[in-house]
Design a protein around this nucleic acid. Structure first.
Lengths: 143, 143
DNA sequence: TCTCAAATTAGACAGATTCTAAGACTTCAT
DNA sequence: ATGAAGTCTTAGAATCTGTCTAATTTGAGA
């Protein structure tokens, strides 16, 4: 991933390109496996230890607000983050909580009637089940 | 909501009908506004204070496992719970985090190809935007 | 009634995230 | 350059959500 692209996308989002912010964005663009804040903190500081935990969280919040990063809440687990540019759905594993990307396809949006006074921004489709790693041992669930 | 219905649904789910469990289930069936665990704890004990916090969490976990209650994770906020029997989608407010029900409609499921070795269990559609209460003041965001 | 598993409890604990207060860095007008 | 103002970062404390522990109570069935 080319540095200028990252810098430009930050600036397009109205964010200054600081080394710490750059590191978070670059890491997310290079790692599609939906890391948690803790994983990002560890990985970013392993390369060059100069981001505090608060800064990771601050920058993730800024990136989400700027629309450059998506946050995925998972029941009972830490949030996961995702900078993939192309639109996609998500598959969440019931057992391990991992989040995987699924190919995008449009579905009908709710009509104005059912929205009422709400302002619609976007939708996403979440699939649940067992990921490829967990599926084979699902029998052990009933052990 | 009739007491026998609640009792029966608990027993159908393989759960003993204790006063504490009953109280959680009854509260959820009577309150469709997707309360958090903390809200349930407070409300249930306001009526009749005999449930500890751990019991609320234990019972919510049991009810979710029995399929009687749905848990909705919301980014950066406490999980919300929902005992509505009829299938529905959710609308989550970007600003206040409230969860509202949206009428159900089927959408195409992912095909076997894109699932690969994953085991599909269910899907849900999540709409995001601003709820009726937050929509009018969205301008203040840029203040 | 007796027994045993299931359920409950208070409070300690843990993990995730936010807050605070201080300092460092940028920007920009002088 | 210089200084003011705002933005960013920091370490650690604090908060919030949720889980665990160990002891006790409850309840269904023998």
């Amino acid at each position: 991933m080319d540095a200028e692209t990252i810098q430009r996308s930050l600036e397009d989002g109205g964010l200054r390109c600081t080394p710490q912010r750059y590191a978070v964005m670059a890491f997310l663009m290079e790692h599609a496996e939906h890391p948690t804040a803790a994983e990002i903190f560890e990985a970013v500081n392993r390369l060059d230890p100069r981001s505090s935990r608060a800064t990771i969280y601050n920058n993730l919040r800024d990136l989400v607000e700027a629309g450059l990063v998506r946050e995925v809440a998972v029941e009972g687990r830490a949030a996961r983050f995702d900078a993939k540019a192309v639109r996609h759905h998500h598959f969440i594993c019931d057992r391990c909580g991992n989040v995987e990307d699924m190919e995008w396809y449009d579905v009908p949006k709710p009509d104005a009637d059912s929205l009422g006074k709400r302002v619609f921004r976007e939708y996403e489709l979440i699939f649940r089940g067992l990921c490829a790693r967990c599926a084979p041992r699902r029998a052990s669930r009933h052990a």
